[in-house]
Amino acid sequence: MASNNEAVAEVQMVAFKLEKEEFAVDIHQVREVLKMTRVTPLPQSAHYIEGLINLRGEVIPVVDLRKRFELPEGERSEQTRIIIVEIQDSNVGLIVDSVTEVLRFSSSAIQPPPARIAGTRTDLIKGVGKVEERLLIILNLERILTTEEIISLEEVTLSK
């Protein structure tokens, strides 16, 4: 909102974990975060679609992000969360290992995706946020959730 002063512009990001990697998504894109709940399986859909949940009467599809990135199915724990994000005007739930916090980045702390790291696809990453020693990858969710191509975790991370 206060974009007239670029220098102090701040972005809020919801940070979450998948395996050992840390990711972030713009808070404006997040509608809410839920604890793991009962999911109705959806037959004959992409393998990473966990199913459907009821969010205040609205039926919302849920994607298991681990499965999306071809990771072994993780165990659901007390930390498991569903992040409801808005993509192209519809809501989608993302199952993640945990939601760690809401971080504030100054916009200068966000870098464009590094080019030419072997195996990393820059089209799937919007940028990289840096907080102290931590590097958080800001995913291009639109791209990741609307394509049916197989994406491995390596393609969206920097660490190899």
Binding site: T40, L42, P43, Q44, S45, I49, L52, G57, E58, V59, I60, P61, I87, Q88, D89, S90, N91, V92, L145, T146
Partner: peptide, 17 residues
């Protein structure tokens, strides 16, 4: 309730409730 536009039509499923 219609299925989200995010999901492609699934043969055999008309919607959800």
């Amino acid at each position: 309730k219609s299925l989200s536009s995010f999901i492609n039509d699934i043969k055999g499923v008309a919607g959800a409730t």
